[in-house]
Amino acid sequence: MKQGPGFLHVARNVILVSLALFACWTAAFYITKSAYAYISWNPHDLISLLINAMLGFIFFGLFIVIIGPLVKGREYDFLHEMIQALRSISRGDFRVNLDSDFVKRNGRPGHNHPFAELVDSINDMAANLKVMEDLRQEFISNVSHEIGSPLTSISGFARALKNKDMDQEKREKYLTIIETECVRLSRLSDNLMKLAVLDSSEHASHKTSYRLDRQLVTLVLACEPQWDDKKIDMNVELEEVEIFADEDLMIQLWINLIHNAIKFTPEGGKIDVFLSQSEDKVNVRITDSGPGITKQDQLRIFERFYKVDQSRTRSMGGSGLGLSIVHKIVEMHDGTISVFSEPGEGATFTVQLPVRSA
């Protein structure tokens, strides 16, 4: 709780003002008395009182005008510094860090200076904006790179196709590469659009009650051509669970995790999908027998455009956005997602959701 001005501080200020007024009125009394004697005038007591009072207030005003800047000069300078800092922030320069020595020097013992909270707020705002700007620059750089790579391939192979002497087999190969890169661009655009929609504060969530176990069974069966083609042993163990959530968003969540597990599971490997309920929490575990993830990569795996293996992920058509979308959907449902993995021993993604999210 913020502390108001102390009684002693208020009393001190009242006494100082009273003394200043007393001194000004005293000076006015003696000045007017000397002036009356000089011009040989003896005014009425009421007139003399009014003149003394008016002159005393004039002296007090002059005193404030002269002494005020000397007393408050450093505060005015610091206020000017804060204004300059805000102007720098408005121009996009977030390297602002106001000196807190001022508030330490001028604060009263046991009380914060009025500018202290403002200084901390400006510094925090500048630091947060700098982090956001760095993320924005990194995001733009990643998007440019992800778009530029397939466009370069498309342009190069399209130029090669102009060669009329090219045999049909090579022509078909180049056309297949162009088609693959176009699909990759389409998938990237789709994922970016999904993230933009999820990030929007205007995104409307349509939550309903439905059977989560039935949804997972349907999605696993929908992916059967992919895991059956790689001869993956798909083990599914699901409890009957009813959940209150956005069904469409949850489909996107599970599809991303299941596709991710299929993509990194080698031929003849195994994937386990478990669903259980504990009180008001739902737990879903998806385990693959892929190459695993290092501890260092686990710390950043949900960041946008982050890829554990750049070359391998690109060859498999990944853009580094799938797990970011998963993380965002889980957050929107007040849940948590974690990953446990050891290199060479596969990976387990665990999603924990409330039965009824807010």
Rank of each mutant, 00 (worst) to 15 (best):
N163C: 07
L151V: 11
A222Y: 09
L129H: 01
I177S: 04
P225Q: 06
N128A: 11
K173E: 15
L219F: 03
K231A: 03
T208N: 12
Q226E: 14
E138C: 02
D120G: 09
T152M: 07
I140R: 15
K164H: 10
S205C: 03
M125S: 14
N163T: 00
S189D: 07
K207H: 01
K130I: 04
I178C: 06
I147T: 06
D134G: 08
C223Y: 10
E202M: 12
L175K: 14
I232N: 03
F115L: 15
E181A: 06
T208Q: 08
E242P: 10
V241R: 11
H145A: 11
R214K: 10
L192T: 04
G148N: 01
P109C: 02
L192E: 06
Q226C: 09
E240M: 00
M234F: 09
P114T: 03
L219Y: 05
D165F: 08
L238K: 00
L188P: 03
I122S: 05
I122G: 03
G156I: 07
E239H: 07
R187Y: 08
A127C: 08
I232S: 04
T180R: 09
E202W: 07
V220F: 07
N123W: 00
L118W: 01
Q168D: 15
L216H: 00
K194I: 05
S189T: 10
I177E: 13
M234E: 03
N128Q: 10
L129E: 01
T218W: 10
E133L: 04
R211N: 03
T180E: 10
N112C: 12
R211P: 13
K164P: 09
E179S: 15
L151F: 02
G110I: 05
G156T: 14
R136S: 07
L221P: 06
R184H: 04
I154L: 03
I154R: 05
F115Q: 03
K130D: 01
A126W: 00
E117L: 06
S153A: 15
L219D: 05
K130E: 02
D199G: 10
S155N: 07
A116N: 03
N235C: 11
G156D: 11
K231W: 01
A116R: 01
L238C: 09
N112V: 11
A127I: 02
E117M: 12
E172P: 08
G156V: 10
L188H: 04
A126V: 01
F139M: 14
D120Q: 13
K162Y: 05
K230Y: 08
G148T: 02
I147W: 04
S205R: 15
E240W: 00
D199C: 07
I154P: 02
E117D: 11
V197N: 14
S141E: 12
